[in-house]
C-alpha cells in the first residue's frame, strides 16, 4: 500500500475533494483528534499478473484511534461502489478498522451541531467538486495513463499521471480542489489557505 507523507491535519492546509470532508476535518480539529487525509492507498484488485487494477484510499485516518473513516455523502450509485470497496477492503485487510459515514450519518452530525442548514451544500453533488479520488473510480472510469505496473500482493502502488494524458486530469483536479477549499471555507466563515 502507499503511504503519503502528511502531518496530522490542519483544516486549511489540506486539499479536500469534497466540502463534507473539509467540515469533518474541522470537527476533528475542534475536538483535538489528530487526523491524516487520504494517507494510505490500499490495493484491492489485481489482474492475473499481479498488477493492481483497483485500489481504495479511505478519506481519513485517525492515528490515535487507529481508525480509518470514509465519508460517502454522494449519490446512491457511488455509495454502492464504495460499499463494495469497503467490503473488499475488510476481506483483504481484516485487522484494519474502518468506519463508513453515510449521508444520513453526516446529516445527523450536522443536525447535532446545529448546522443542518449547511447539509445540502456539504452533501451529495452540491458538495462534490471533483471525482472523489482517482483510486475510487471504477477501472473503466479512470483517466488513461495511470501507472498500473506496481508490484503485486500488497506492495507499493502509486497512481501517477503518465505523460500529457495523465497531466490534464491532474491539473483539473487541483483547480477543482482549490474551489472546494474556498467553498468549504466560505461556508465555515474561515479564511481559505491554498
Amino acid at each position: 500500500m502507499t503511504e503519503a507523507v502528511s502531518a496530522p491535519g490542519q483544516r486549511s492546509d489540506c486539499a479536500f475533494a469534497h466540502a463534507s470532508e473539509a467540515e469533518f476535518g474541522r470537527i476533528l480539529d475542534f475536538y483535538q483528534v489528530a487526523w491524516n487525509y487520504e494517507p494510505t492507498t490500499f490495493p484491492i484488485l489485481w489482474d492475473l499478473d499481479g498488477n493492481v487494477l483497483e485500489s481504495f484510499a479511505p478519506d481519513f485516518y485517525l492515528p490515535e484511534l487507529d481508525l480509518f473513516v470514509e465519508l460517502t455523502t454522494l449519490q446512491q450509485r457511488l455509495v454502492r461502489k464504495k460499499n463494495r470497496k469497503v467490503r473488499r477492503l475488510r476481506e483483504l485487510y481484516p485487522s484494519l478498522r474502518i468506519k463508513l459515514f453515510y449521508a444520513r450519518d453526516f446529516r445527523a452530525l450536522m443536525l447535532k451541531y446545529g448546522r443542518s442548514a449547511l447539509v445540502s451544500e456539504l452533501s451529495g453533488t452540491m458538495g462534490q467538486v471533483v471525482p472523489h479520488h482517482e483510486s475510487d473510480l471504477e477501472p473503466d472510469d479512470r483517466p488513461l495513463g495511470l501507472d498500473r505496473s506496481a508490484a503485486p500482493n500488497h506492495a507499493a502502488f502509486d497512481l501517477k499521471p503518465d505523460g500529457d494524458a495523465g497531466q490534464r486530469p491532474e491539473r483539473r483536479s487541483r483547480n477543482a480542489r482549490r474551489r472546494a477549499i474556498r467553498k468549504a471555507a466560505a461556508l465555515a466563515n474561515v479564511p481559505a489557505t491554498i
Partner: peptide, 14 residues
Amino acid sequence: SSYGGTATESSGLV
C-alpha cells in the same frame, strides 16, 4: 463548548 456554536468565532477548538 460544542462544535458549531462558537467553533468559527473563536479559536475553533473545544
